[in-house]
Nucleic acid binder design. Structure first.
Lengths: 167, 167
DNA sequence: TTAAACTTTCAAAAATAATTGAAAGTTTTT
DNA sequence: AAAAACTTTCAATTATTTTTGAAAGTTTAA
């Protein structure tokens, strides 16, 4: 396979994957592009390579920066802004995990706690509801906590260790 | 909070969460509803509670069954079909992890392997591309493997152990 | 075997999400 | 301080996804 073809395939695949994970296609494609680019990339280049509008590029770059996985990079002597992706994969995983926890898991936990506190109703239905939502709360909370701990260890020794243990 | 209100809030929240995770809202809502229902639920009831059409209910139930997290249940003496959700959370997590691995991670790994094998081009750009995609392959493969191992242990002793260790 | 009870399918419609592009906003240069 | 170089915003448009509902399909009961 040729370089250009491979690069394109990678960007496309990463984009398609993104949309299955609640990240929009263009955002994932931009991220993919930056991940495999050696040097900082300008907005112009991104528009060009992905054939998207200026507005689209701008908004999705902003989104990626909000996730903390893409940064602005200034090239000396250049007026325009360039962009680079977080390329350290452990760091990338940590950021994504932290951000998803903050945006999605924590709010969900709040709701689970609320609804599992339903009072008064002593029907079987209500009892079962409380039981299930409590279990769910415990489960999600401990999963969240585990992810937190694991991602703290940036050098990934834990992952390597576990794979050894369970092989 | 009253039972009905709580139940509704739970279903809504779970639905909204689902759509951030690439699962559609209705599918997640049906799942939520079944999760907290003591007894098997008929399609009629689902349509009624979620105010959705028959076709919609049918298709999304099928989707949930494809994921292996909802089953048909026949009530004796009843003609129609009823549905129940997998309620064991470790089992649920295992199924979801396995299915996502199969549907998303494995195909992505295949592409990563392909594109990282780009040949011939000895430009700096191409070298960097190969390096990054190889790293990505390793990372994703080991994450996938780890998830596999962890989900094998259904009793969750591992999670509990880790939380103890890292507290 | 026919009717009744129920489920699935799928083309069309509706709802939602992403994208564009030009105007407004910024920052830098002259 | 005006122009130039660039970025952001957002209303309108376009694309995608979801939903509907009625027809076709299936299974059970009479």
């Amino acid at each position: 396979m040729q370089f250009d073809e491979a690069k394109n395939k990678f960007v496309q695949t990463w984009g398609a994957l993104g949309s299955q994970w609640g990240i929009n296609k263009t955002m994932a494609q931009i991220h993919a592009l930056l991940m495999v680019s050696k040097d900082p990339v300008s907005m112009e280049d991104i528009m060009q390579e992905l054939q998207i509008s200026r507005g689209n590029a701008s908004m999705n770059l902003r989104g990626l920066m909000d996730w903390g996985i893409v940064y602005k990079a200034n090239k000396p002597g250049e007026r325009r802004e360039f962009f680079i992706a977080e390329k350290d994969l452990d760091e990338l995983a940590t950021k994504i995990a932290k951000e998803r926890s903050k945006r999605e898991i924590k709010p969900a936990l709040k709701v689970l706690k609320e609804v599992s506190a339903v009072e008064g109703d002593k029907s079987e239905e209500a009892k079962h509801f409380v039981e299930q939502t409590k279990k769910l709360y415990e489960f999600v909370a401990s999963a969240d906590e585990m992810i937190d701990k694991v991602t703290e260890y940036k050098d990934n020794w834990l992952g390597k260790l576990m794979i050894k243990i369970f092989k």
